[in-house]
Amino acid sequence: MGGFEAGPVNQNEKDTAYWEWQIDAMIRLALDKGLITDFAELRDGIEQLEPQDYERFTYFERWAKSLAYCLLSKGIVTQALLDAKISEIRERQARDGLR
């Protein structure tokens, strides 16, 4: 990305949402617990993103997708479990109503 042409830098500050802190903590705990080896592994996960996804995703969305890639590759979670959990969360959100 370094050296590409791009527009002015938007200097607006943005608060970190609590779920983003949770992703941040998950990454660090995954490192601490040895679920992933190092940041290089996570970077590899980031590099698996399609260019349009890389552009579209926010910072913590990219980390979430990267960690998922790493843990799926290692078999620490399975795609089936992940899909089921996502459906469960969507149902929960629909039932509870989004705040």
Binding site: W19, Q22, K33, L35, D53, E61, W63, A64, A68, L81
Partner: peptide, 27 residues
């Protein structure tokens, strides 16, 4: 409370992963 829940597909992957890791006893 003052932050919305995440709803994008990519964010939900993160939320789901977090719950799976907790349920799996990883943290």
């Amino acid at each position: 409370p003052d932050h919305p829940e995440p709803t994008s597909d990519a964010a939900l992957v993160g939320v789901a992963l977090r719950e799976l890791l907790m349920e799996g006893g990883h943290y």
